[in-house]
C-alpha cells in the first residue's frame, strides 16, 4: 500500500473519530445540564420582600431559595450593642458595619452555621439568637459568640429597591 493511500485512509478515520467525539459530547451535554436548576427554580433565585409593616424591634422570616431569611428591624439599643463589640475577640471577626450597611436593618440567613438548624430569636445570652440544637449563641449582629458554630450567620446579597422593599438574591 502506498504511503499516500495510508495517509488518506488514516485521515478519514481520524476525522470520523474526531467528528464523532464532538457529536457524542454535544449529545451528552443536555443529559447532564438537565440536572442543573431548571427555569422555574431559577425564577425564584431572588425574591422581593415588603418590609413596610415591620416595626423597630420586630423580625420577620421569609423563605428564600428554600431557606429562612431573618429580616430584623433593630432598635437603637441593639445597634449600639452590636457596634460596641471588640471584634478582635470574636471567633469569626466581622464588623457590624460590614454586615448591616443600613444599621437599622439586619438581613441574614437564619441557618446555624454549625449543623443547619434554625436559631430562635430574642434568646440567648447576647441578646440575639440561640440555637437549641447544640447551644450556639449569636449576638444582635448575628455573630457567633458562644457554642460550637464556627462562623457568623451568613449575610446574603440584598438591596433596598425602595424604602419599603428589600430584594434578596
Amino acid at each position: 500500500m502506498s504511503d499516500k493511500k495510508v495517509k488518506r485512509r488514516d485521515f478519514i478515520f481520524t476525522t470520523s473519530y474526531a467528528l464523532g467525539a464532538v457529536g457524542v459530547g454535544a449529545a451528552v451535554w443536555p443529559l447532564i445540564d438537565q440536572m442543573n436548576p431548571d427555569a422555574s427554580v431559577k425564577a425564584l433565585a431572588s425574591t422581593e420582600v415588603d418590609v413596610s409593616s415591620v416595626e423597630p424591634g420586630q423580625s420577620i422570616t421569609v423563605l428564600w431559595r428554600g431557606k429562612p431569611v431573618f429580616i430584623k428591624r433593630r432598635t437603637q439599643e441593639e445597634i449600639d450593642k452590636a457596634r460596641e463589640v471588640d471584634i478582635k475577640n470574636l471567633k469569626h471577626p466581622e464588623k457590624d458595619e460590614d454586615r448591616a450597611k443600613n444599621p437599622e436593618w439586619l438581613v441574614m440567613l437564619g441557618v446555624c452555621t454549625h449543623l443547619g438548624c434554625v436559631p430562635l430569636g430574642d434568646k440567648g445570652e447576647y441578646g440575639g439568637w440561640f440555637c437549641p440544637c447544640h447551644g450556639s449563641h449569636y449576638d444582635t449582629s448575628g455573630r457567633i459568640r458562644k457554642g460550637p458554630a464556627p462562623t457568623n450567620m451568613e449575610i446574603p446579597k440584598y438591596e433596598f429597591v425602595n424604602t419599603n422593599t428589600i430584594k434578596i438574591g
Binding site: 478519514i12 478515520f13 476525522t15 470520523s16 467528528l19 464523532g20 464532538v22 457529536g23 454535544a26
Partner: peptide
C-alpha cells in the same frame, strides 16, 4: 447537517 457530514465520513471509512 452534522449527522449528514458524519454519515458521509463514515461511509468512506
Amino acid at each position: 447537517i452534522y449527522l449528514i457530514i458524519l454519515t458521509i465520513l463514515v461511509y468512506f471509512s
